[in-house]
């Protein structure tokens, strides 16, 4: 089974190709805004290095977030078009799962965080399992101080991974049962592992049904003056 994985949920976009869960090629770029310029040349590069044509791909995997929306949508649109053009099914996954899977701990509760900008972060708890992780609660969007309070109230050993570096230091201080670790960003390499597992279980998604995981209502920034003459004419 030949897989293509596309990751654009954070400033680190990456693409990877692999045979089952074996990585054959990968390209990474860290740039908040460069997703669209990066993706296609990167896919072309890794594919041509192993001599694959687009039609050789059996499964297209994509990270559906949470993460900043513009990059997320660029990855999803790229993956959808690719899958649709060659008639391949897709596998979707959450950025939080992709980060959590690489957290190195045998017993601590894992809290991956993704920077959603404007001082907000997507977080979710995971339990370490032998050879993997299991979600242990629903993802939510919080500010760093709410997150601190959350970790304090949990009262258990935790490992925070992901983009916690962006949180103010004050929000991270004094949490004695918390360790702050890696990875910082999700990676398309990890995605291959998850995708081949899900594909083997038949956990596939049609390209039309792939949606970003937004977790926030859209910002509405139109604010024109209210109409002072409203109601001037009787209906």
């Amino acid at each position: 089974m030949k897989l293509l994985a596309i990751e654009t949920a954070t400033p680190a976009s990456s693409v990877a190709i692999g045979e089952d869960d074996r990585l054959l090629g990968m390209s990474v770029n860290v740039d908040r805004r460069g997703h669209v310029g990066f993706l296609m040349p990167a896919i072309d590069f890794v594919m041509s290095r192993v001599g694959w044509q687009p039609r050789d791909i059996d499964i297209v995997a994509v990270d559906v977030g949470p993460g900043p929306y513009t990059g997320l949508r660029a990855g999803i649109a790229t993956a959808q078009a690719f899958a649709a053009a060659i008639g391949a099914p897709m596998v979707t996954m959450s950025s939080l799962t992709v980060i959590a899977l690489r957290a190195a701990t045998g017993r601590r509760r894992i809290w991956p965080v993704v920077d959603m900008r404007r001082g907000q972060f997507a977080v979710a708890p995971f339990q370490p399992l032998p050879g993997g992780v299991a979600p242990d609660g629903a993802p939510e969007v919080v500010n760093p101080y709410d997150f601190k309070a959350l970790l304090e109230s949990e009262g258990q050993d935790a490992l925070v991974v992901g983009d916690w570096h962006v949180m103010p230091e004050e929000a991270r201080r004094g949490l004695h049962r918390v360790r702050w670790g890696r990875p910082r960003y999700p990676s398309a390499e990890t995605m291959l592992e998850i995708a081949s597992m899900r594909a083997n279980k038949g956990n596939l998604t049609d390209a039309d049904d792939v949606r970003p995981m937004y977790m926030r209502e859209p910002d509405v920034d139109i604010n024109w003056t209210a109409f002072r003459s409203e109601g001037a004419w009787p209906e």
Partner: peptide, 16 residues
């Protein structure tokens, strides 16, 4: 713009 552009580029590439 990003949505259509990403989609269009990928579609073209995949179709050669």
């Amino acid at each position: 713009l990003m949505v259509g552009f990403a989609f269009g580029k990928s579609l073209a590439y995949s179709l050669g």
